[in-house]
Structure formats: C-alpha cells, structure tokens
C-alpha cells in the first residue's frame, strides 16, 4: 500500500469531478424546482389535455409540421371535435402569447434548444421591435 496517498487523492478528485454538477448548482443558486410558467389568460382549453401537451407537444408539432408542409392538410381536429389551424405561430402562440415566460422558460430549465425559432417568429418580438 505504498501508493495509498496517490490512490486516495485520485479517488477524491474523481468523486469531486463527477459530483461537480451538484456543487455547481448549489453554488450558483439554481434550484431543481420546476419553473413557474405563465399560462394564457384568454383561453382555458388547449388543443389537448395539459398532461399530453407537456409530454408530447414536440411530437405533435412535428406531426403538424409534416401534415401542413408535406400533405397540405392544415386542420387539426381535437378530441372534443374542435378544429384548429395547425400553426405554431398562428395557433399556439395566439394563446400562449408569452413565449419567453412559457416556451423558453421550460426549455431553458430542461436544457433543450429547439431550432423551431430559427425560422418561426415570435409575434411579440416583431411588435416590440416596431414599437
């Protein structure tokens, strides 16, 4: 056990490194609490139940995208029979008019960067730049 010192230093270093994210979050004061999202005030009902939307809005948006762009089919029929225009900016963002406090906040928390916004425009952004 001549190398005891080296082994233990190595172990401590290793443990320190793999638990780094925990220390980093503690130090920078970010919490693991889910973000508080600003929900629309104008509308009570989304195109699907909250749980479904939370879990699989990305799949739904991809399906919408392919339906509209590739099939020229633009109408989504919700479970309750209500019809919607399949459009991220013109339908989703009409109610969820606060992209920063809704989409972005949760995406930031989850550490995902959807490339939707490379092309699709947040109408608020345009209004602000005009006003």
């Amino acid at each position: 056990m001549r190398d005891r010192g080296l082994i233990f230093t190595g172990l401590v270093l290793f443990l320190g490194l793999i638990t780094f994210p925990v220390w980093y979050n503690l130090a920078s004061g970010t919490s693991s609490k889910p973000p508080e999202l600003k929900l629309p005030t104008t509308e009570k009902q989304c195109v699907a139940p909250t749980e479904t939307m939370r879990m699989s809005h990305m799949e739904m948006l991809i399906t919408w995208r392919d339906q509209v762009v590739r099939q020229n089919d633009r109408t989504y029929v919700a479970a309750d029979g209500k019809r919607y225009d399949m459009s991220l900016t013109n339908t989703c963002l009409k109610c969820h008019d606060n992209k920063a406090e809704f989409c972005d906040k949760c995406h930031d928390y989850a550490g995902v960067k959807p490339y939707c916004w490379d092309c699709h425009i947040d109408p608020k952004l345009v209004q602000r730049s005009k006003g």
Binding site: N90, I121, L125
Partner: peptide
Amino acid sequence: ALDPEFPTRTKGVVEKCTFCEERLA
C-alpha cells in the same frame, strides 16, 4: 420587416416561389 405569419428560413437551405400555397389554402 418581419411578418410573423410566415416563417423565415435558416442559413443553409434552398428556397423559391411556392405559388403562395399558404394563401391558396
């Protein structure tokens, strides 16, 4: 002048006239 009703494009893709298919719809 950005029109939020229609997407912009990203760098690195090809684009052209689409006969205004979104208006035809």
